[in-house]
């Protein structure tokens, strides 16, 4: 059947088990925002270019606009909401705050998840700044303060 939410999925989003019925064509990004209600994951280009929608699927940073919700059945998904809260920022979020690594903040959730994923995968700061950060478009900052924030986060040497 098409156009009906006829696919049953069970996934773990930010450590919470989520069971849902989705259409085949439901994008992971829309599933997270509209079905799960986690609007921290932003969408802009919806064809993989901008990086705003980046989340972790089984610890790997991926574009959630280029995955179907049906594909995360049995997987673990982490979104920006898994980091700190407004009153208790994670070390990476604190570093972004301290270094003024954002202006409008639209690109920020995706960048945070890429950096978090890089850290979990054991990448060094150079790999994150030189290879992974270019996978994100930021219209505001000019990137320098984001780089400073990532460097300061990695310099802390602590695990979030």
């Amino acid at each position: 059947m098409t156009g009906e939410p006829d696919i049953r999925i069970t996934t773990t989003v930010n450590d919470v088990t989520v069971e849902a019925q989705v259409e085949g064509r439901t994008l992971l990004s829309d599933f997270l925002r509209h079905d799960v209600g986690l609007t921290g994951t932003h969408v802009a280009c919806e064809h993989g270019v901008c990086g705003a929608c980046t989340v972790l699927v089984d610890d790997q940073p991926v574009r959630s606009c280029l995955m179907l919700a049906a594909q995360v059945d049995g997987c673990r998904v982490d979104t920006v909401e898994s980091l700190g809260t407004q009153d208790d920022l994670s070390p990476l979020q604190s570093a972004m705050w301290a270094e003024h690594g954002l202006q409008c903040g639209f690109c920020t959730p995706g960048i945070l998840m890429t950096v978090e994923g890089g850290r979990r995968a054991g990448l060094d700061v150079r790999q994150v700044v030189e290879d992974a950060l270019p996978g994100h478009l930021c219209r505001c900052t000019g990137y320098q303060n984001i780089r400073n924030a990532i460097e300061s986060y990695f310099a802390q040497g602590v695990q979030a």
Partner: peptide, 16 residues
């Protein structure tokens, strides 16, 4: 049906 826009057109999804 969900009250939000779907980007792809409808299709049947088969996970081999």
């Amino acid at each position: 049906m969900k009250g939000y826009c779907m980007k792809p057109g409808p299709f049947r999804y088969i996970a081999a």
